[in-house]
Amino acid sequence: MMDDLKTRLKEMLTSGAIGMVIGYGQKEIYMADGSREYRTCPVFLSRDTEIDRLVWNRHCVQNLVTYLTKEEYKESGKIALMVKPCDLKAIHVLEQEKQIDRKRLFIIGLTCKGVMAEKMGIDEGHLAGKCIKCLDSSGKSSAVCTPDEADIVIETLPDGDMPPKGKDISSDLEGFEKMPSEKRWAFWQNQFLKCLRCYACRSACPMCYCEQCICDMSRPQWIDKSPHLKGNFLFHIVRAFHLTGRCVGCGECERVCPMGIPLMLINQKMIDTVKDLYGYESGKDPEQAPLLSQFKMDDDQSFIK
């Protein structure tokens, strides 16, 4: 299946049908003990001779959809993109929000059995927290890219045995919510004290595409730019608000945080809240209107007091 894909992509690059493939590849990296290791990372291929670099394994964690809205990739012609079922939801939101032109995109839909949890650059040795609810007990994925959504569907599953499952993000959140409010407050103070405001969470997020982020504005300075506790709280609260009804739970913000801040606790809470109140799931369908630009007479209004 991967071979068919590679042949097709080579043809498409040669004929000019696509200008670039954004996918996963492996590169050899130089380790301190003199050994070489292979690391799976995004690759940007514009020559047919490079296509054989593409791989599909459990370390294909990064959500590549984030590149679609970055200035540098807008001039690359039609882009072929490797997309996991969960990443596909991000494409749907971008379509809803009119940020991408589906015609400029060739979606390589991957069939996924879960990817590894990565935190602070380290493979944690178990499945990512977001993957658990996607998999049934046999390890089969309940979410797959359908031919309607993807231009080509890769049915080959990543090689190797099923890794340990690890903890589901929802059970993490449940445990967290059982803590008394003072403890939760102390928890976040502790976490946000570490925040450097490197904005890796924002840069990795497929939904953070604003040309001018409110957090970068200096005149007026709406959000304290300084990475002190108050500024950091403001930044993360504003980010949570801006992602409500939009976050698809890809977990990139938490994966890339160099300080290991568990940002998915916040996002998952917002995802659950939106689902409970409005029955809305972000990215489920590219045709649905964004949550905050629709109104139904029977919408929950209990928050208006």
Partner: peptide, 21 residues
């Protein structure tokens, strides 16, 4: 591939750029 975050510069022991606010 660079996503434009500040991870490398902020963790770097020699990067020293700053902003005044």
């Amino acid at each position: 591939g660079c996503i434009g975050c500040g991870t490398c510069t902020y963790l770097c022991p020699t990067c020293h750029c700053f902003d005044i606010t």
